[in-house]
Design a protein around this nucleic acid. Structure first.
Lengths: 211, 211, 211, 211
DNA sequence: GATGAATGAGATTTCATTCAT
DNA sequence: CATGAATGAAATCTCATTCAT
């Protein structure tokens, strides 16, 4: 009996894994239930058995991708007492996490295309809330206290800025490659971008003058 | 129901206009040729007559959207001698342009999902190159010359940063709304964001210290 | 005025010429009105103006192809007093005529596929009757009279045999090529076949024994 | 309307059977997938499920028709020691086999119209090679050995002649009916034709004189 | 819980034909 | 006589979903 249960869980996981790949590669509308079943080496009925519909499957994929992502974030611990080093580490971490998990970008893009309809239908995704925001808030406070950072930086704005800078670079890579003839995904290019956005963020945090 | 007189150029334009809306709203795979034809009050085969295939139509839409966008950018003139004011104006302009033409964001996202396949098939899109990059370069040079800006800022990096900050805020609005329960598209919120990213960019340009 | 009339005739002829090519190459159902119009560098309306419908056009093509063919046959004159030489010449002529005008084969095949429906609709095709049949009858009579040929050969049977032998070799060339890996349309092969069927026919005509 | 139980093999066979009828009756381009599905009392997608495309279906039909035909030929055994009787039997057999299976004629005609494209795409049809050719070769050898037949008759030429004479009579029946006002498919007419072509072939095989 | 067979609705695309000028 | 623009019907093909076992 335990075996069966374990298998069921395995099957569910397998479906989720391959569905994630499919939905990330082709978007919600481009993804094919047939194709997912084939990837899973499973009959389509199983997908319906476990997830009820294509939309249900997509929602589950979103949830699990987010869950994974959130757990990643939770694992993140600020290893540096110094706020500047901590912030530097955070930028680094954010960019690397997205690079390693580009699926989440494609999934969020397709979710956004659908105006968030799928997310709203999810019971689980009630807290898409990113724990990094708290980390940012905490680092900013410590930085302000030590005088390393200017006071009154809005943590949400900083979070959005950091996300945008890391996310967009990856999300628009094909357009950018086409426009500038540059493959921005090579290691040197990625490193340069990380250095740049770190500079950008830190300069902002540390600045004391107004222009 | 028979259409009147209608010359080809008009029809082509009409098709493009409505197709843009459809593709932007639903992505390449979610868009329906039927739906476009209905919007145009035209029979489907006309779309095929003018654009050959759904893909051909999408490419034409991308091209025309980009053309429009590029012309917008061309119209942009720096009205301020002062580099800081010029840069402020540029940020403002970029964000407003994207806000007013959110179609282009959705179109680029779906093009990116397809790994740029459509762009590569386009003969016209050979120069997606954004003229704003030149403007940025010029402003940076002037700012460095007057000492307002630090020297050696890479124009491409600044361009990418600015784009990311403006683009992502709009592109991910639904995820963000869901995550934070905030409608980021209200006028006050948009203004606040514009102020923030202007601050971010300018602080970066004007900073003279290293951290 | 005469010019216009002349042009009209030209236009009709042009349409017929290109339609023949199209119908012969693709059969009735495979032929495309659009494609014909393009070949003619004419707007489709012209086809409808002159021929009323695709079917009307096909019938006209059949008629004209047959007309041409019949005129060819009429031109044929037996140049040899000797019945054997005359028959030899006839076989040669028949095979060469079909080789030079393979369109007629494809057209007749497609007409046969449609169970002769198109021919029956034609007013002009009332006498598809091949004048060669008369020539055969006459040669056979002369041959029987001189004792060169056996008596009582049925001209229709001989006509059908000759036609079948010449026609099928061309009509089934692709199947045969595929089955035997031989390109039967090379000059040496064609010559060999002509020699063979001449032999076959003449042997039959001249034989005096029963088996 | 839901179908019962039905296993795949049966369904495949059913599709093939009705497709054969449709393709034979209307040619490749005239055949309608819809019409086949209706005949099969099956939804269209099943055809695509089993055969991938209309072309795939046609190829399968060709293959199966040929397979059937080849098996027929294999079943053929020369029951007569006497070469003349054997040849007579062969002619009879060939004509009857085509009469009973007129589908194959229509299918080959449409395959030829398409210049053999479909056959070349078939992996199975690699040996369209007709076993009757071997039989012919063997009969000719025996006939030559006994002196009943003249030596040096080319088996392939004889095969082609026999095929042409039997095939064309059936294939062109509608043209012939139209041209001569005779229904060549009545029993007496068919018998007469069989007698004639038997005579023609045997006369050729037995002749010892040159003309 | 799992499968193979099947479906209905609808997707993209094609094509003979006609209208307005 | 001639055209460019347009159409309606139907063609091929796809896809999320369900049934019977």
């Amino acid at each position: 009996m335990r075996r069966v249960a374990a298998d069921a869980k395995n099957t569910r996981q397998r479906i989720l894994r391959y569905s994630t790949v499919e939905f990330a590669a082709k978007g919600y509308d481009g993804a094919r239930v047939d194709s997912i079943a084939r990837r899973c080496r499973l009959s389509k009925n199983m997908l319906y058995h476990y997830f009820h519909s294509k939309e249900g499957l997509f929602i589950a994929v979103l949830e699990s991708a987010y869950e994974t992502f959130r757990m990643h974030q939770r694992d993140f611990v600020v290893r540096h007492a110094d706020p500047i080093d901590a912030m530097r580490q955070l930028v680094d971490y954010t960019f690397e996490a997205l690079l390693e998990n580009q699926h989440i970008i494609a999934l969020l893009n397709t979710a956004n295309l659908h105006k968030g309809r799928h997310m709203r239908r999810s019971r689980v995704m009630r807290s898409l809330y990113d724990p990094l925001l708290d980390t940012i808030r905490e680092i900013l406070q410590r930085g302000a206290a030590t005088g390393a950072f200017r006071p009154n930086i809005d943590p949400l704005n900083l979070y959005l800025s950091l996300s945008a800078l890391a996310y967009n670079y990856i999300s628009n890579q094909h357009t950018l490659k086409f426009a500038f003839g540059i493959n921005f995904m090579t290691k040197p290019r990625r490193d340069a971008w990380l250095a740049h956005i770190t500079d950008l963020i830190l300069t902002y945090c540390c600045a004391n003058t107004r222009h």
